[in-house]
């Protein structure tokens, strides 16, 4: 058991994947000599060489498109998109190519690859560095989308995503990279990838989040407990496929559900969770499913991002509102 940051855990997970399978490659802007702008690939090129840890030209469509070619040749590329807002030049390759090869080829061709994207805000960055594009990829058939919220998941989920035969969008909450430490047992068996997880049991309200919002959700549960409310907190972990069985089981007990994400509220993951839970739990619900998300504006200037992001007060307010019906 080792204590490490999310960044170190991702680095260790990459290292393990590179050791386990010689077909695994890492490619992206600045991932080699520099070790990535967030240092997630720190030291990998020194140990695995520049044939496997590939500094690429500054062209995201080119990175993803050549990764497709490498996957067709039998490699398992792990692509780093430097920041969430820079994935859009690669959007066509991801949506029209990566996501469709298996389908288009009647299942004859697979393109196992992982596209790692640091996402979310809260780091005081300039424009295009704080986005949450997950719903756009969840809406795309042929992609799987997962996100980690702690070092143990960062370590385990990344290895499992790399080992998967389907393309996976791997969203990394950049705000947690260096701020969140936790214990990682590198010798323990990895927990299942395609499952959500109850991270705090409770009985009055179900609170669902993922990635960067999990610490807020846990803070909300702690504060609510002082106020005499028991909140069950669930980390979705996998966004596509969605694993809502634990959420549905929980809502049948609590009758109340609040979904939290940084992404714009309209047509975000919260909308999908609300629709599915309403369908499954209609007679158990004591209140409408409420969402707390980023507002439907472009991500704002850094000095006001705290007002934009879902925070403790906004989520607590939503929890309170579920008792007002």
């Amino acid at each position: 058991m080792v204590t490490m940051t999310v960044a170190k855990a991702l680095n260790a997970g990459l290292r393990k994947a590179l050791e386990d399978d010689e077909k695994v490659l890492v490619m992206g802007e600045d991932v080699g000599t520099l070790g990535g702008v967030f240092r997630i690939t720190d030291g990998l090129q020194k140990d695995f060489g520049d044939d496997r840890i590939i500094d690429t030209p500054l062209a995201e469509s080119g990175i993803v498109g050549t990764a497709v070619g490498l996957a067709l040749r039998g490699y398992r590329p792990v692509v780093e998109i430097q920041f969430d807002g820079f994935v859009y030049p690669a959007y066509d390759q991801i949506v029209c190519q990566v996501a469709r090869f298996h389908f288009r080829s009647q299942g004859r061709v697979k393109v196992p690859m992982v596209i790692r994207i640091p996402y979310g805000g809260g780091i005081g960055a300039v424009e295009h560095h704080s986005e949450s594009p997950e719903a756009q990829f969840v809406h795309t058939p042929g992609l799987k989308v997962v996100t980690c919220s702690n070092p143990a998941d960062a370590y385990g989920m990344l290895q499992q995503a790399i080992a998967a035969d389907d393309p996976v969008i791997f969203l990394e909450p950049k705000r947690l990279y260096h701020s969140t430490k936790g214990e990682v047992d590198e010798s323990a068996p990895l927990p299942p990838l395609w499952h959500s997880r109850v991270v705090r049991p409770g009985s009055d309200v179900t609170l669902v989040g993922y990635g960067p919002t999990m610490s807020t959700c846990l803070d909300v549960a702690a504060v609510a407990e002082e106020e005499g409310r028991s909140i069950e907190v669930i980390d979705l972990r996998t966004l596509s496929p969605l694993d809502l069985a634990p959420v549905i089981e929980s809502v049948r007990r609590t009758g109340r559900l609040v979904v939290v994400h940084e992404a714009h509220q309209t047509l975000g993951l919260g909308a999908e969770v609300a629709a599915r839970v309403t369908e499954e739990c209609f007679h158990s619900l004591e209140a409408p499913v409420l969402r707390v998300g980023g507002y439907d504006t472009p991500y704002p200037a850094a000095r006001i991002e705290e007002a934009w992001l879902p925070d403790l007060d906004r989520v607590l307010d939503a929890v309170d509102r579920t008792f007002g019906y």
Binding site: G65, T66, R73
Partner: peptide, 13 residues
């Protein structure tokens, strides 16, 4: 779009 796939495939070669 496939011009990139060809180039990546060649990188694999």
């Amino acid at each position: 779009a496939h011009s990139l796939h060809a180039t990546g495939y060649a990188m694999g070669v």
